[in-house]
Write a protein that binds this DNA or RNA. Structure first.
Lengths: 340, 340
DNA sequence: TTGTACGCGTTATCAA
DNA sequence: TTGATAACGCGTACAA
């Protein structure tokens, strides 16, 4: 377990009585080395147990072949599917992926940005934390690092591209679905309204009500961090309202908490209160009644974000034009929303 | 978005008409620099927008302050909880974490090992892929890199420590629980029996039967990759057996697939067939009937693995003695296993 | 096709 | 307390 026995290209060169630059070229499969010496070098490298030092190589070339991913929380099913998509595309392009969790903390996000810049990743995929209100902490990376592409949580910053899902439309569809199923008094669970994504979702809810001539009442709109416990708490609060026949939660987790509470209280879903969630979390198909929800193309979003970023990295400084891709969503109708 | 405008310690040195080595010392908060010049340097560094280049530093010091984590699949709840634990402990020690997915592929695992070695991570946390039968691909890293600690999936290799959960005991408890609830003909869903972890779980099942004088029948033991679909398939197969009154699945996912199938076929859980799973997956508490299962301390296992590895990294070559920690598990009794 | 010579940005060593 | 110099391992412009 000593660390001093590193074999370098110079060791190979010495053993073969050639120059290290030739070894370097051979190991990078350059065409400027004869097949014969290339073969000799590769054999000797293997025999000596040579292991390339990417640190040195990256320092020299000023590239790391690595993209950084900042994700609010890995353990959320939605994000781990995105990560799988990101890795899938990156892997095919020969890029490594470094994953960092902000845990929804702005301070951690800032620190991560510094670390990624210090480690000279070639580009960054970013879904901002819920605490992130200003994006100034991205400037050093954009100046000295590389491109940043936002995913999932929409942001508008300098020339950064973004790829998100159509939160507005999903929310609109979900709300309208409840209305078409006879709901008139629909409670809405919102996330933090400082976050653009939740502003969009709320707008979808409001506009769907408006389209069907239902008055928006602010006490029917409840904000939280959308955890399961908050879902329970808000459901309790909801039952205190004069009339409620529908609930649209802007994520499944809170919807599930609410459903558990309602079941507990003997309130029938969907007959007393119809429920629609957002995310298509695996639990939504298992819970009883199964939860109507909005499916987002998470894996695909990851793939697209990854390849968009890598394309921009390869383009270099020139021609990086701001792209904005918005992916379509799908209403998945199950049992929680259809009154008998 | 140009990359040539990197400010280095030399730029700072030049601006201040001092030597770059002093700048380096100041930036590393060395005590061998006067407070006065330290302050001047830090201010100038900030003014110029200096961003440390870790690549160069790591190359020079031959340390990266980074640990690599190889995980079969991030999107499995169990593993993402482990990762959270790993990051939590690493973060506190000031280490960065690089997460890589093998996707249960031996080839990818091999490739990842090479990448991590090339990038000179200081140590590796490894949960081997299901395809991994030989561990020879770890040798280069152990020779030229640093320590490896196995987590979750037990492995015995050279002087590598490991931290796992007590699969045998969990499995024994689960099986005995079924027996004590009146089951005599208990089907067992095993994972690939080439994997040590599943060997241990199987042994727990077999021994529990033996303790209660129930004959083990090999046709009651069914192997698969334990996906939900495999759970469905095996459940179908299970119903063809002469007598079955219990099912112990070595993970929740397959148990859930089976429960869905049984419900579909009008077989009552737990009255006709009692079911116990393994993992305490979030779905297990939501499905109806709720699933009795084995809870594993995933987050804690991650924390422990992380701090064990970092301790070994700090110790260096000397004194790395092989440690083997086995964490206890807990039977969580719910409704799927208690006959009325 | 191969060799020479130097630089990437940082830090360790030695001397002042 | 600071400076001068070399070295980490690799890649590349240039020359041969």
């Amino acid at each position: 377990m000593k660390k001093n026995d590193q074999i370098t290209i110079h060791d190979i060169a010495r053993a073969l009585e050639i120059d290290s630059s030739t070894v370097s070229r051979a190991l990078n499969n350059s065409s400027r080395v004869s097949e014969k010496t290339k073969k000799r070098i590769l054999e000797k490298a293997h025999a000596l147990g040579y292991q390339r030092n990417s640190l040195a190589s990256n320092l020299r070339t000023n590239k790391t072949n690595t993209i950084g991913v900042i994700v609010p929380r890995i353990s959320r099913n939605f994000f781990s599917n995105i990560i799988s998509g990101i890795e899938d595309a990156a892997y095919q392009e020969g890029y490594n992926v470094v994953i960092c969790q902000s845990l929804e903390s702005f301070d951690r996000e800032k620190k991560i940005m510094e670390t990624l810049l210090a480690n000279r990743v070639d580009g960054i995929l970013l879904s901002t934390s819920m605490e992130t209100l200003s994006l100034d902490h991205l400037k050093p990376y954009l100046t000295h690092g590389g491109p940043i592409v936002f995913y999932d949580r929409p942001c508008d910053f300098e020339n950064c591209s973004s790829i998100t899902i159509n939160d507005y439309k999903g929310s609109f569809k979900a709300t309208e679905h409840l209305i078409l199923n006879g709901c008139k008094d629909i409670v809405y669970f919102s996330g933090p309204e400082t976050v653009a994504l939740y502003q969009n979702r709320k707008k979808g809810y409001v506009d769907a009500l408006a389209k069907h001539n239902i008055t928006y009442r602010s006490d029917y709109c409840m904000s939280s961090n959308l955890s399961e416990n908050e879902g329970i708490r808000l459901a309790e609060q909801m039952l205190k309202l004069p009339q409620v026949d529908g609930l649209f939660s802007s994520n499944d987790t809170a919807a599930i908490g609410a459903m558990k509470y309602l079941k507990n209280q003997g309130v029938s879903v969907p007959n007393d209160i119809a429920v629609v969630g957002f995310n298509n979390h695996p639990i939504s198909s298992v819970i009883e009644p199964s939860l109507t929800t909005i499916n987002q193309p998470d894996f695909i979003m990851g793939q697209l974000a990854s390849s968009m970023l890598i394309r921009q990295i390869k383009q270099g400084d020139i021609g990086v034009s701001k792209e904005t891709e918005i992916l379509d969503v799908e209403l998945i109708i199950r049992n929680s929303s259809q009154k008998l």
